[in-house]
Amino acid sequence: MLVLALDTATPAVTAGVVTLDDEGPRLLAERVTVDAKAHGELLTPHLRDALAEAGAGMGDVDAIVCGVGPGPFTGLRAGMVTAAALADALEVPAYPVCSLDAIAADVPGEAPLLVVTDARRREVYWASYLAGNRVEGPRVQRPAELLAELGSVTRVAGGGVSLCEFPAAVEVVGTAQPSPVGLVRAAGSPVLEGAAPAPLTPLYLRRPDAVEPGARKRVSQA
């Protein structure tokens, strides 16, 4: 089956066409641009161009897999509403995937793994994995707090790694952002089985910055 995979939870605008069968996912074409301000502009053209390179059209798509964050607000929504609209128009299911899980899915091996991405405002999103399964997270924290809490870390992945001062012995593995194949792999067997997808719910992990107004300010001198 032909799967359209997309993610806008990191500074990358990620679009890919993946073929999926019992052997697992295989990349046919991808378009990735790292530009945190270009999600809205480039995502749909990237999807169109990747499909064209794969020799396919929108009508050939059997399923969509979409990273649902955690991601810093605005760009994340560009990907999610694109996935929702494509699924609606093409009448295919759209499967949500935690974007950190997709990064983890690209890292081979059973050893413990920490995935960290940039949450801006001097914080990181993170989740930890053992034998490919998420055991903690996703959460948002300051890097120092994360390091203090975790204790031993042996392997790390994700674009937030450079924001944390890991000990020199820690091995950096994997990619900075989810890949199309990682997204499809993380979405797991429901895609191939054609199971009903979970709702596309964004993982914001933060409340909106909004404060209720206090007593009104006076304009005249008391």
Binding site: H39, G40, L43, T44, L47, R48, M58, T74, R77, A78, G79, V81, T82, A83, A84, A85, L86, D88, A89
Partner: peptide, 12 residues
């Protein structure tokens, strides 16, 4: 951004 992204996806 939400409306524009949705419209582009529907149009494509």
């Amino acid at each position: 951004l939400v409306g524009v992204s949705a419209a582009k996806a529907y149009a494509a």
